[in-house]
Design a binder for these strands. Structure first.
Lengths: 192, 192
DNA sequence: ATCTTCATGTAAATTGTTACATGATTTT
DNA sequence: AAAATCATGTAACAATTTACATGAAGAT
């Protein structure tokens, strides 16, 4: 149930419509927490009912409408409370390592394909996250720039440092997965 | 939906009751795919309906009963098909890295607590997995021994090697998380 | 005109979590 | 006799995924 906190994290920086939020989301927090728009719209409505956000109804042209969501004080508090509370860790659920433990039951070709795909998938993630790191350093990430604009001078360094720290962790994870799968490919060659 | 394949992987080695399966599960695949008994019993029933397993009804004492589940040919094929098919990767959903990206919004104390807990949680996982590696090497893991007993001589080395490979990956992951969180603690000290 | 982007959702199905519920058998 | 373990589930809820559905506004 971190979705609402991910949404609050973005909205706290400034009001957005569901649509814009969803785009910002996929460009920032979405790297760490995926959610499709069909989940975001209903969640915003629920958060509105619970008083965490307020919708400012706007019209667009003749009949177009949009709802601009603002974080309320209660929403702000909810976010800060969540940040200060212990994180609840979910149990591991890792289909790739599950399969890896049983690779002897399939053909070497299927095993190689699985590992090659693992490398492809994690390389894509790695590229994303390294790109994000570069954008953080170049201050060219729009979300980060928006955040820095509403951040007091003395807090800017920390803000950047933590964001960097988060992405570094993701980059290392991806590198680890890729190295592991490479070793797996060697292993397949060795034992088959 | 890897749960059923995790269950099949265990049952393929030999028939078990839901209760024993659940215990084996938590001692082996459970490290990679957690599932509570309240999920395992219904899943077994569903798999029975779909013809992947067959239940042998047994009595225990006067009125006690148990259902011993055997994998059917269809179940065996389903498992092998799954092993040979491309794995579907879920999108990232990582509350720890999500929170890490926003650590500047909380107090240094809360940030430290979060990171310390991250280290604790992953150290526990690490200990589990290193223990598992040691048990693989010592051939003292009961599940592995059962599996080797039904494995042809020439396939034993591969079986062990892949199991080792899977756990090595998990160990490295845990080490990475711990190192990352340690660096995070240094960072908190530096910026606050 | 038509294509893209803006804009907001509903519905159904699946998956997973938490709590509850029950009772037999074996061991101390 | 009590405690531990064996044994099997149901119920309610929460979270997630996938697919569907609709239409306005702005750009080419």
């Amino acid at each position: 149930m971190s979705l609402r906190y991910a949404l609050l994290a973005i909205l706290r920086v400034g009001a957005l419509s569901g649509y814009d939020l969803q785009k910002q989301f996929s460009l920032s927090v979405g790297h760490v927490w995926h959610a499709p728009d069909s989940q975001i719209y209903p969640e915003l409505r629920k958060m509105e009912q619970e008083g965490l956000v307020e919708a400012e109804e706007q019209t667009r042209g003749e009949r177009g409408r949009r709802r601009l969501y603002h974080v309320t004080d209660a929403g702000d508090r909810a976010f800060l409370d969540w940040m200060a509370a212990p994180l609840d860790y979910q149990r591991v659920r890792d289909p790739a390592h599950l399969r890896a433990a049983y690779l002897e039951t399939t053909t070497p070709e299927a095993a190689r394909e699985f590992l090659a795909r693992h490398i492809t998938v994690w390389s894509a993630e790695l590229a994303q996250w390294e790109g994000e790191l570069a954008r953080i350093d170049a201050l060219s990430n729009p979300m980060l720039v928006r955040r820095l604009a509403v951040t007091a001078e003395e807090d800017r360094e920390r803000t950047i440092a933590y964001k960097r720290f988060a992405y570094e962790g993701l980059v290392e994870r991806a590198r680890g997965e890729i190295e592991w799968a490479r070793r797996g490919l060697d292993l397949v060659d060795r034992v088959s």
